[in-house]
């Protein structure tokens, strides 16, 4: 299996007033295509930071992050943005949908940013709405949807460009257990059917059980890295 995500001696330090806080210390991981990885750890352990560095939302202090062989930290803004549109789909804890756009428009956001014609993506849109089960909500705005439905829209947005990787930050952290379960099943289904690599950050061991690999992070270091 090919490696799609790789970190080498990855370090991240934040300035907190005059104090340097080391959030990640010499992190080395390699994630293969099609894996469903759960990153776990206590609050402040650096798991979300690791996810953001992988997604190019933040820059490492030292070390490398490679996505599909490209060193994310070295990419220019334009290439980094293209990578986020085409290669990666993000799912956040608080859904982060654009309130004045409807479901379809929110899902099509990466396509729009990529300069794609909406008409060409009609079939793909229908397919994704079918996968996330929101065909009858396509013209609704986020405020007209429940939390679970909003998270489904966020997942659909992550899938629209058929990316190789989905990065999910506490995807069910804001949902009740039943809805959370549904969302995790959806992610698992996508992982299986589409072959999409999924990396999620989670506090919940139940949520982590949906994946095939669990990485424990503590004090900025990889504590354990286990396949199930």
């Amino acid at each position: 299996m090919s490696v799609v995500i790789e970190t080498e001696q990855l370090n991240k330090t934040y300035k907190l007033g005059s104090v340097d806080v080391e959030v990640l210390k010499d992190v080395n991981i390699a994630i293969n295509k099609g894996e469903f990885v759960s990153i776990m750890g206590p609050s402040g352990s650096g798991k979300s930071t690791l996810l953001y560095l992988i997604g190019g939302l933040d820059k490492p202090t030292s070390g490398n992050v490679k996505v599909n062989g490209k060193n994310v930290a070295k990419l220019k803004d334009k290439d980094e943005s293209i990578m986020r549109r085409r290669d990666i789909g993000f799912v956040f804890q608080f859904y982060n949908l654009i309130p004045n756009l409807n479901v379809e428009e929110n899902i099509l956001m990466p396509v729009l940013l990529d300069g794609g014609k909406i008409k060409k993506y009609r079939a793909r849109l229908d397919e994704i709405l079918n996968i996330v089960g929101l065909e009858d909500r396509r013209h609704h705005t986020p405020r007209e949807l429940s939390g679970g439905q909003q998270q489904r829209v966020a997942i659909a947005r992550g899938l629209i460009n058929n990316p190789e990787i989905i990065l999910a930050d506490e995807p069910i952290g804001n949902l009740d257990s039943k809805t959370g379960c549904e969302i995790m099943q959806l992610l698992k289904r996508i992982n299986k059917s589409e072959g999409t690599t999924i990396v999620q950050v989670t506090h919940s061991s139940e949520s982590a059980d949906y994946g095939n690999r669990v990485i424990h992070v503590r004090d900025g270091r990889i504590e354990t890295d286990e396949y199930k």
């Binding site: 943005s81 990578m83 789909g89 654009i98």
Partner: peptide, 14 residues
């Protein structure tokens, strides 16, 4: 929301 748009691929220029 601008950050969200950037997270899904909106470049600085855009």
């Amino acid at each position: 929301y601008i950050a969200v748009q950037k997270s899904v691929g909106m470049s600085r220029k855009q």
